[in-house]
Design a binder for these strands. Structure first.
Length: 258
DNA sequence: ATGGCTTAGGTGCTAAGA
């Protein structure tokens, strides 16, 4: 079973990229972030034509998440429970017995911004919900754009990024707390990577891609029973070099079940 | 190299991203 995540930065702009990528890489589940589409505009027909089911929750201009799956998702959730939020950032469903939760975590903007406080509160609510989900789901994958680079080596310049947004101690603590709850960062099972393959995002500005100024902020976290059968975890960095790319690339985990 | 892109909304610019 393959489970993927991709922040597409507008599904309207990136639909052709997504369909072409799925044709080459027919994963069982693909979590999308930043679809930036209201639900009435979601391209259900095109996705069904490609042979996939989908569930989604979106809004105008910002945020928006979806799950594109080979078999239909069950027990679908479209928000964090017990957390008031206008932002559409969460979509979860059970696919062939695996609980798959796709998230678009807040960016935070700056450490002194109200958005940073929102980010930390949002992660608290995510933590509480995941802990609850783990009580009833032995096979669970939490994947998406976390907007956190967990370690210095997950940035192109650890000294420069140390303490900054995406790398600050409270953000990294929030990430570690998810791991402590019983999830593994599957990337680290195959941690010997170099160059572009260390990252999942490159800034559009300042020649980010050209000078490989990237970050690893898109993650696949999984419970131990899935970690045991995880045979690969990789970023499809070639997508960043395409014409009109998203600034994030797809990240795919392979789990040898069923 | 704290933004020199890219997106949406709307039609000239602002907001947001990470």
């Amino acid at each position: 079973m393959q489970i993927a995540t991709w922040n597409v930065n507008s599904l309207n702009v990136r639909l052709d990229h997504v369909l072409a990528w799925l044709e080459k890489n027919p994963v069982d589940a693909l979590a999308l972030q930043e679809t930036k589409l209201t639900d009435d505009k979601f391209p259900v027909a095109a996705i069904r034509e490609a042979g996939y089911e989908c569930v989604f929750t979106g809004q105008k201009t910002y945020n928006g998440v979806a799950l594109i799956t080979k078999s239909a998702a069950e027990d679908v959730v479209t928000a964090l429970p017990d957390f008031e939020d206008d932002h559409k950032r969460v979509i979860g469903g059970t696919i062939d017995g695996v609980r798959v939760i796709g998230v678009y975590c807040p960016n935070g903007q700056d450490l002194d911004s109200p958005k940073f406080q929102y980010k930390l509160a949002w992660f608290d609510a995510l933590q509480a919900w995941i802990e609850k989900e783990l009580q009833t789901h032995d096979k669970l994958v939490l994947t998406g754009d976390f907007n956190i680079a967990p370690r210095g080596e997950d940035t192109y310049d650890p000294d420069k990024w140390e303490g900054r947004i995406l790398c600050s101690p409270p953000e990294r603590a929030a990430f570690t707390k998810l791991l402590d709850a019983g999830l593994a960062d599957c990337w680290r099972l195959f941690d010997e990577r170099e160059g572009r393959h260390r990252f999942t995002w490159w800034d559009y500005r300042n020649g980010g891609w050209a000078r490989n100024a990237g970050l690893r902020i898109d993650h696949v976290l999984a419970t131990p029973s899935l970690v045991d059968v995880c045979s690969d975890l990789k970023a499809f960095v070639g997508e960043r070099g395409r014409k009109r790319p998203s600034d994030h690339v797809p990240v795919v985990g392979t789990f040898n079940i069923g």
